Computed example of a mutant assay.
Amino acid sequence: MNKGTVFKYEIKRILFSREYLLLLAATVAYSLSLLRGFVLYGADYTAPFSLLTFLNYCASLAPFLFTILLVLCTKQFKASERRAESIIGATPMPLHVFRLLRYSAIACAFLIATAIPVTACFMFYQQVFDYTAFGVLFWPGLLFLLPPAILLFGAAMLLGNRRGAAVYVMIAAVLIISIFQIKLPSFVDIIGSAAIQWRNQEKYDFALSSAFIAGRVTFSVVGIVLIIISLCQSKKSPSC
C-alpha cells in the first residue's frame, strides 16, 4: 500500500469532514471579530501590532485551535477507525507507519487551522497599519501555540487508545480553563493567559518569562515522547 496514497486519503477525509469545517468556520469568524474589536485598539495601551497584542490574540484563539485538534483525535478512536487498523494489520504496511500517516494528517489539518487566523492577522497589520515585521511576532506566536498542541496531541493519542472518553475530558478541561479564565502558573500555562500579564509597565516593554519558555520546552519534549509511545503501543479497544 502506497504511503502517499494513504496520507492523501487521510488529509482529504479530515479537511472535508463536517466537524472540521464547522470548527474552522467558527475559529475564522471569531478571529475576524477579534481583529475588528480587539486587535485594532491594541492590548493594555500598546500598539495593535505589538507583541503583547498579538499574543493576546493567539491566547484568545488557542481554545478554538486546541478543540479542533482534540476533536480530530477523538475520531481516531471510533469503531470504524479501529476496523481500519485491523485491516492494515493484514497488509505489509506496519501499524506504526499507518498511525504516523494519520498523525501527520491531523497535524497538517491543525497547522492549516492555525495558519488561517494568523495569516489574517498579518494581512490586517499590512493593510491597515502598513506593518510587515512579522518575524518579531511569528516566532513568539509559534512558541505560544505549538508546544501545548504537541503535548495535548501526544496525551490524547496515548490516553485515547486506552480510554476514548479521556480525550473528551481533555476538551472539557481546555474549555473550562479558557471560559473561566483560570490562571495557571507560567510553567504549566496551556492557554497562555498568565504569560500575557504585563508586569513591566514602568519600562513599557513586554517579554515572555523564562518560566513560560521552560514550560513550552517541557511541553514539546513530553508531547513528542507521548507521541512516540502511542505509535508503538499495541492495539487496544478503548473503553468509553
Rank of each mutant, 00 (worst) to 15 (best):
L23I: 02
G154H: 03
P147Y: 04
F134I: 06
V167I: 14
K8F: 09
G160N: 02
I171D: 00
L35F: 01
R82L: 15
L101I: 11
C240G: 13
G164M: 09
I171Y: 05
N2K: 10
R163A: 15
S237H: 12
N56K: 13
M157F: 03
A149Y: 01
R216S: 10
I88A: 09
F77S: 00
L24T: 07
S33F: 10
G223I: 04
K236E: 15
T119C: 14
T67L: 05
Y41W: 14
A113S: 11
P94H: 01
G42V: 10
L158C: 05
I224L: 15
A113M: 03
V221C: 05
A113K: 05
L152G: 04
M1E: 11
S210N: 12
I112D: 02
I196R: 04
P117D: 00
I88C: 05
Q127W: 13
F219S: 04
F49M: 10
T53H: 07
L137I: 03
D44Q: 15
F124N: 01
L23C: 05
S237P: 01
K78W: 04
A133D: 15
I116K: 06
I228C: 08
A62R: 04
I228A: 12
L208H: 06
M123S: 12
L72C: 11
C240P: 07
F187Y: 10
Y45S: 13
I116E: 06
K235T: 09
S86W: 09
Q76M: 09
P94E: 00
A133C: 11
Y103E: 10
L32C: 12
F144T: 03
A105H: 06
A195Q: 05
L65N: 02
I87W: 14
S50P: 13
T91Y: 05
L32R: 04
F54L: 08
A47P: 04
R13S: 12
I176F: 04
L159R: 03
K75V: 08
Q126D: 14
L159Q: 05
L72R: 03
P148D: 07
